[in-house]
């Protein structure tokens, strides 16, 4: 199971302040903590970053990879900021991951960047219109994105399809549809397409003390459906333990009494 550590986000006050002040330490610490906890990618969410986004993303990539030997997931809607990050990304430990393209024409340019910098890319199966109703609709959008990716020269193995997880408290039936989409996406290509979710979306809007339980339970179901990666909090030890235990049941890792330590 690939974990994309979600903690470095403009939404977090501490991170936003460090970004504004160009203070590397809080960001580097957060990256290091997540990496040590087992994150494979570190998500770098700078938001829309309309003002000097290029400078900010370049700085973020450089200061994080100065400390942490991991690839980064570059998370912004600002294409030129994204490109500034890709230019300086060190691929020694893995390709960068772009977050994200979709079926919205405004996001097509992200595929061009993925081709140009040979990076991986998350493809959200949503278009410009409303949200997809079920797995079939998500697969239809996925197929369009995959066709476009091939035109741009992005190999399909560089794409992670994201069914878009919606909050269970308002759109309960969508949980099942997204799970089905994780299964169905894999059939769209041989070798199977890779998949990803933003896990904590499922528990948006529910009382705070229930979020972790809901995230963990849904994660198990998604892993059983064949999920490749999750944007999640690697510092949530319970969540990581659930992930490791599920990997055992799926025969993806070998049991030993101390398996949780590994």
């Amino acid at each position: 199971m690939i974990i994309i550590g979600e903690k470095i986000s403009v939404i977090a006050k501490k991170v936003r302040e460090a970004m504004d002040a160009r203070d590397p330490k809080p960001i580097q610490d957060l990256a290091m903590e997540q990496w040590k906890a087992g994150a494979h990618f570190i998500d770098v969410n700078i938001g829309p970053a309309e003002d000097k986004g290029e400078d900010l993303m370049k700085w973020m990539v450089e200061i994080i990879q100065e400390k942490v030997q991991a690839p980064l997931c570059l998370d912004t809607t600002n294409a030129s900021a994204l490109e500034a990050g890709l230019k300086v990304h060190n691929n020694e430990w893995g390709k960068a991951l772009i977050n994200s393209t979709s079926n919205d024409p405004e996001r097509f340019g992200m595929l061009e960047l993925a081709a140009k910098y040979e990076s991986e890319i998350i493809a959200l199966t949503v278009g410009k219109g409303g949200l997809p109703a079920d797995s079939e609709e998500r697969c239809g959008i996925a197929a369009e994105i995959m066709g476009r990716a091939m035109e741009f020269g992005v190999p399909l193995e560089n794409i992670y399809l994201d069914p878009l997880i919606l909050q269970v408290c308002t759109t309960q039936d969508q949980a099942m549809h997204s799970m089905k989409a994780i299964q169905d996406f894999q059939d769209l290509n041989d070798p199977p397409m890779k998949t990803v979710v933003g896990l904590s979306n499922i528990s948006n809007g529910v009382p705070r003390n229930m979020r972790s339980l809901i995230d963990k339970t849904y994660l198990v179901l998604l892993m059983y459906a064949g999920l490749t990666a999750a944007i999640a909090n690697p510092l949530d030890k319970d969540l990581v333990d659930v992930m490791k235990t599920t990997d055992l049941f799926l025969n993806k890792s070998l049991y030993a009494d101390s398996y949780l330590d590994m």
Binding site: L254, Y255, A256, S258, D261
Partner: peptide, 14 residues
């Protein structure tokens, strides 16, 4: 026993 083999290797590296 493969699980014991893994466990011992973990304990030793720890």
């Amino acid at each position: 026993d493969i699980n014991l083999a893994k466990q011992l290797n973990i304990l030793i590296t720890q």
